[in-house]
Nucleic acid binder design. Structure first.
Lengths: 213, 213
DNA sequence: AATTATTAATCAATCGATTAATTAGTTTTG
DNA sequence: CAAAACTAATTAATCGATTGATTAATAATT
């Protein structure tokens, strides 16, 4: 059955994604993946052409879901502040789910090898960064926002979220709760992150009392 | 010679640090380390007891330098704003150097294994986070700062810097320059990061016009 | 002479990948 | 409709390569 086969492939991808995120690419053996997925090791090559192919399949699977709908957001006729808020909202919602994939992406970026996967990631992520940057630049151009270092502000936006996901052990210590617990993440961390980002960005982007120096 | 031996050990550690940061722990073979360092492979076990021991040695080497002198800063009798500025300054200076080690640390945290190394990192990094948190809490307590979500703000501080270092490929695209170039990093990125962080933090921590809702 | 440092060679273990054989499922054919 | 032929899916076993580690022999230093 075609759909049955696809289900099995998806199951393998799901397992592989988790293991890759926990153990890294080199740290995850095909034997372990096969064992955890409950399939024969040869199936990985049969389905995906090998370990590298499976790794790529994980990205193919997620990368479409991952594309933020910021382009359409940027075309809406709403204020720059509303765009920014929606952007923060969307990003936080998206990023908190599939944290496994986020970890893989982040680790893959920090290494500088495996160029095929790397190129895909860079293309995807840089596209997102560009959209956020445009919202900020537009806001500055139409006078809604004060002039700030846009690049650094984008780094702050992505970096803050990234810290909570990728340094979850540290963040858990900082907050005093186990961030990896989905309930804590959803009901505590996510709302606080959204609120924090919105307030801080607004305060910074409307701050007029330090024009000199 | 004891010092000559120590020099050789340090040289190996230096090479290993770079390779671990570029290729990851599992992705770096002992043969490659020995080759790059120009020593026999057996020397790694002879000196460090094995690959894991060498990995630990990298941390032992760096972890002392890594400890920020924030405790003393916290005892100085200066304003909360000055403390915060100095904190940002110190952190940016420290973090931009030895970015290799920073990458290793970050990757090690995002994985959740290799517990001995992990514990050391968590202990070190959480200590730093606590100090920054205290500066912010003190500032709020004495009325210098507006009440904000301190934990999230600490995440922003560490996350922004982490983004520039660990996602340097993305950040380079964002900024339009090669961040990995030390000259660019020192003369462009670092000053901008410091300036950005100081202004944003100040704007956020002195913002009084949105108390409602 | 005795301890330390260094080398080349080799160890077992594990890696990803592939093979040949077997089962299951589908299609063709009488 | 059912037997045969064929294709796809799955398995166990094995492949060569590479891994980290260790050995026994040699060189250097004390």
């Amino acid at each position: 059955m075609t759909e049955e086969k696809q289900e099995k492939k998806n199951h393998i991808i799901e397992i592989a994604e988790r293991l890759f995120s926990e153990l890294g690419f080199d740290g995850t053996s095909t034997r372990l993946i096969a064992q955890e997925a409950g399939v024969n090791m040869a199936m990985l090559s049969y389905y995906f052409g090998g370990k590298e192919g499976l790794y790529l399949a994980v990205f193919e699977q997620r990368i479409s879901e991952q594309k933020l709908r910021l382009q359409s957001l940027n075309n809406e006729s709403i204020s720059s502040f509303e765009k920014l808020d929606k952007c923060i909202e969307t990003y936080a919602d998206r990023m908190m789910s599939n944290s496994c994939f986020q970890k893989i992406i982040h680790r893959e970026i920090s290494l500088s090898q495996r160029t095929e996967v790397n190129d895909k990631i860079i293309h995807l992520m840089s596209g997102n960064a560009t959209e956020v940057k445009r919202i900020l630049l537009d806001g500055i151009a139409n006078g809604s926002f004060v002039e700030v270092d846009v690049d650094m502000l984008v780094a702050t936006m992505f970096g803050t979220k990234s810290y909570l996901i990728n340094s979850s052990q540290l963040a858990s210590f900082l907050i005093g709760k186990d961030i990896t617990d989905p309930k804590v993440m959803e009901e505590d961390v996510k709302p606080r992150l959204k609120n924090h980002m919105k307030k801080m960005f607004k305060a910074y982007l409307t701050n007029h009392n330090e024009e000199n120096k």
